[in-house]
Write a protein that binds this DNA or RNA. Structure first.
Lengths: 128, 128
DNA sequence: GGCTTCCTCCGACAAACGTAGTAGGTTGTC
DNA sequence: GACAACCTACTACGTTTGTCGGAGGAAGCC
């Protein structure tokens, strides 16, 4: 259990998302965005979170003017893929099929999404 | 952050899965199953995990003969649904569509699964 | 009746996480 | 040049999670 790659807590992820969405930002910028999202958190808490993200190599920083500016070092896609994989292996025995079926059955898809899905299936069909 | 319902760590989930798959079992049973799955873990560790599961109301136990027998109190479906929801809200903004598309695109579905998926889509289509 | 085996109860401990306070430096403004 | 506003560095602390060890009691065996 020592791999733990792309493993981060909820609060850390929240901060990383700000980095993804807002590009290079300062501690204060992140705090402001979190506050805007209704997440009341102290300045130094954000700072700690960013420092940890940097220790874990999910982010990097440079001194720019009077404050450090942080940016993400891992892509959203990479983290997302990893989490998806974890969910799949932890609860679906690694099989994507059942998860897909459940999602389509229980969550509302937009017409647009349904169209795309149909297109994908067609492709899978003709490919065989 | 005080809801934390259906929130359990990886090791706790492993134990819960044994309860789901094997029905009422003793500490030793669980340990044996974990060992069979390649997870080397001490007897008392399993005991602690089961105790915590019980504290969190995910499991219950009765004294049966000389050892306690544990059983799951939450369904696999309930936990699975919750975890799915967490993934969705943490990384997909709550929208299932993108996740479904990614899964279909990147994971191999069996022909059978594709057929089921097609059937589901057809239903969605005619329902509109 | 003593030895081995199993079980439960408790305590413990390190790492990870979420959260934040304090100290001390830089800067901008009257 | 003093004060307010910011910034970084460091420390800290409670909770959760993963992992066990030891003490002490019932049971089976010879």
């Amino acid at each position: 259990m020592t791999s733990r790659q792309y493993d981060l807590g909820g609060a850390e992820l929240e901060v990383l998302k700000v980095l993804w969405d807002e590009g290079p930002v300062t501690v204060r910028d992140v705090m402001t965005h979190l506050h805007d999202n209704g997440r009341q958190v102290a300045y130094t808490t954000v700072q700690t979170l960013l420092t940890r993200l940097e220790q874990k190599r999910y982010a990097a920083s440079d001194k720019s003017g009077l404050a450090f500016v942080y940016r993400a070092k891992v892509s959203r896609d990479r983290v997302t893929r990893y989490r998806r994989k974890v969910l799949l292996s932890q609860l679906y025995d690694g099989a994507a099929g059942p998860l897909v079926l459940q999602l389509v059955r229980t969550e509302k898809l937009t017409p647009e999404e349904v169209r795309e899905l149909q297109a994908l299936i067609d492709e899978l069909d003709t490919r065989r």
